[in-house]
Design a protein around this nucleic acid. Structure first.
Lengths: 215, 215
DNA sequence: GTCTATAACCTGATAGAC
DNA sequence: GTCTATCAGGTTATAGAC
């Protein structure tokens, strides 16, 4: 909170700059938590990747658990707020669905770590650290769009909650499981910009086709 | 390997019965690995759930890693062999796809742990412990069905590999993320037989609609 | 703000008795 | 086959110097 004279210094080994160091720790922690999860994550690894010593983690955060909580909050709250601002409820269902999917895919593609991290959190800690109501907000928007679409006769007769889950799964599985299936695209990097765009297009087409009423 | 006089004794605290104890350890390990992953899994927890002491794990398996490998093999090889026996390549694409999905969903629903475990393995260890070619076998079958369906004009114009990933994701996401989304079905158990059947039906409808050509 | 110890604890793995 | 120690190594978290 000191009036820092160094305006912006995002690079590694930023020297003595509280905000920069804290941000670096959060980024490194996100990376580590995304492949290890809370328990298996090593504070040593986070520190090494940040370029400072373990001590700094405890200087800026109460403990590993608190750091984890802050990383999760940061990862979830921002994207969700942005989606809420799209005001999808004011658009016709099929358009709202496409926009939702496109935006959600874009958010997740920007930081593929997040998808993995949220999976790990669900599996390992039963979602204990999720900010309350975030998940409900996400699925609430989707189920509403789907229910509206059915009522208006543009979507086929489907169960909104199950379908919402299937839609989110379609958006996220590619990212979370990419280490699982990289052999399918021998050579190509699955998280490259081009491949992520390809995934987004295919996912959107799959979702739209899966939901729209045949006529 | 001693000629055991006790034919079958699957219950807990089976006493001195090598095969029973070993099987119990494998089951408990699957459970533990499915929520913790290799690194975060505790041999103590596996032993406790089995009803014997940690020592037994090292009596029957070289180390934690070897136990993990055996659990993964057991989980993957069996289901895949069974799917291969369906001889889907001899059926028309849309029928083959539905049968694949139905069978795969059934397999995964029987042991929801497996879905979580494979996810964790992909995220945490980059699939290092997968039996070589298992994944390729699974996705190979799916992409072939999809390519055939496009060639025959029954499936829409889609990218087979991406769509294969989306299909698997649709089957598996519900299971792997169920702790994430249980609030959506307040009260109901998401892994109950009825709910799993509901999921299977919705997933199959979603997949078929997402793939079939509108006409 | 950042570092170098170091305390206190946990966990994988083994030795040896029964 | 199964158990009771027990060791060696690793990990979180803190104390105290700079």
């Amino acid at each position: 909170m000191t009036t820092s004279h160094k305006a912006k210094q995002t690079r590694l080994s930023a020297g003595r700059d509280a905000e920069a160091t804290k941000a670096q720790i959060l980024d490194a922690a996100e990376q580590e938590f995304a492949i290890a999860g809370l328990t298996a994550a090593r504070t040593e690894a986070i520190a090494a990747q940040t370029g400072v010593t373990k001590t700094m983690i405890y200087y800026y955060f109460k403990d590993k658990e608190a750091l984890y909580q802050e990383v999760i909050n940061r990862a979830l709250i921002n994207p969700l707020n942005q989606i809420a601002q799209l005001q999808l409820e004011k658009q016709p269902p099929s358009q709202a669905l496409e926009q939702f999917a496109r935006f959600f895919l874009q958010q997740m593609s920007q930081r593929p770590n997040i998808a993995s991290m949220l999976f790990l959190e669900a599996i390992q800690n039963q979602g204990k650290y999720y900010p309350k109501a975030s998940i409900e907000q996400l699925y609430g928007m989707l189920t509403k769009i789907l229910a509206d679409g059915i009522a208006q006769g543009v979507f086929r007769s489907l169960e909104p909650r199950h379908t919402a889950v299937n839609i989110v799964g379609t958006c996220v599985f590619y990212l979370a499981a990419h280490e699982n299936i990289k052999h399918l695209w021998k050579g190509k990097r699955m998280l490259s910009k081009a491949m992520l765009e390809e995934h987004a297009e295919e996912a959107i087409n799959f979702i739209k086709a899966g939901v729209l009423l045949n006529q």
